[in-house]
Every structure is written in C-alpha cells, then in structure tokens.
Design a protein around this nucleic acid. Structure first.
Lengths: 109, 109
DNA sequence: CTGTATCCAGTAGGATACTG
DNA sequence: CAGTATCCTACTGGATACAG
C-alpha cells in the first residue's frame, strides 16, 4: 500500500510535474507553449518532466513531421483520471491549510 | 490551485514520509520503534522527517521526562485527515497501476 | 534512548551554447 | 521549433561517530 502510494507520488515528484499536468488538463499544448506558460522552467527540465510523464503513460507526445517540427503534448485518459485524486489533495489543502492554518503559516502570517 | 496542491505534496516529499504517516496511522510509536519498523532509514533522516511532519502539524511529538528519554510520535487530527486524500491516491494506483498496467510495467513484465 | 555533528556521494535542476 | 550537450550548484539522504 505504501509502495503503490509512493509509486503515484514518484510520478508527480518533479518540481514542475503537477503544474504541467494541470496545464495540460486545460488543453493540448506545444512544447514552446508549455515552456512559456510554466514559470521559470528550463528546457532541459521541461523535456525531462514531459518524458517522465510520457513514460508513465500520463501524457501523450504527438510529433508533426512538418518543418519546423511541431510537437503537441496532451493528457492521456490515464492522465485525466489522475486529476481526480489530485483534486482530493487540493480539496484537503483548501480545507485544512487555507481554512484552519498550519503552524507554519501562522508563523509567517 | 497548483500552489495548494504542491504544498501538500511538499509535506509528503521525503523518501520515507508517507511510510511513516502510514505507520503512525496504525498507532503511536516511540522513536526507536519507528526507526526499527521503517526499512533502512538513517537516524538523521528519520529525525528530519519527523521534525518536518511535526512542523507541518501532521505529527505530534510527546517527550517523557523520565530517563532514559522516551519520545512518542503520533498522528494529529490533521495528520489523520490527510490519510483520506492519501487513500484516494492509493485507490487510483490500485485501479490503474495494478489493474491496467502502465507502459513502464508492461516493458518490464 | 533520542538524538546531533560531520563528511560524502548521488541527483535534481538551472544556465548556456549548440543541433536537425 | 524542439530539443541535446555540457557544466555547475544546491539539496537529499546515508554512514559513522559522538552526546545528554
């Protein structure tokens, strides 16, 4: 059970992974669009993150053979299904971190 | 929304964090018990992880003044509440990683 | 028993330049 | 346009020894 949970967490582990999933949840994007719309991510890290997501089956990479190359990234059905438990995490955060405040936030508030 | 989600993920970020939460969900433990029951974790990392969980209000640290010192760790109500979205992640993994298989697993299967 | 201090290796991720 | 190659820094976590 820990292992299964960790497996999911590992899929989302990167610094920008969740943000990219959320972004693609709003629609297909080209490489450069993701690069632009995601805050200060480097191309190297973006490629790594997208490859990881693709490797785990959450994201689909579709390459257009025309020049200059066009590559489109989109969520797979599996990727979409993951947004559900992801929303559960968000709901928890909204209820407990914004509502009740954590000790951390109390200090800096 | 990304930020709130990331905040939760950051709470669970450590290599052993989730395992410790699951362990404490089965009952209060002493430091040495956690050390023993969690696979190959170092004392340094264990202390760091517990401190982080405590700092985020998920775990309660209770020190017994008697010598030799006895310290008991347990989940707070907030920590307990987190097991719910955590279960949602596990359920997703159970349904999609074990059931349908990811490309990754297909390759190595 | 419950840590802390120190040192060290591996990895994530940024900056920059280059390629098909 | 969509990356790759290279270099570099910071952080994570393990090993070991020491401390109250």
């Amino acid at each position: 059970m820990i292992n299964a949970t960790r497996a999911v967490l590992d899929m989302l582990a990167g610094k920008w992974t969740v943000e990219i999933v959320y972004l693609l949840a709003t629609g297909t994007r080209r490489y450069s669009e993701v690069l632009y719309e995601v805050g200060e991510i480097s191309k190297k890290t973006l490629t790594q993150t997208l490859r990881s997501l693709e490797h785990h089956g959450l994201v689909d990479r579709r390459e257009d053979p025309d020049l200059p190359t066009r590559v489109e990234y989109s969520l797979t059905p599996l990727g979409w299904s993951l947004t559900e438990p992801l929303m559960a995490l968000y709901e928890w955060a909204a209820a407990h971190l914004l509502g009740a405040r954590t000790p951390t936030q109390r200090l800096t508030a």
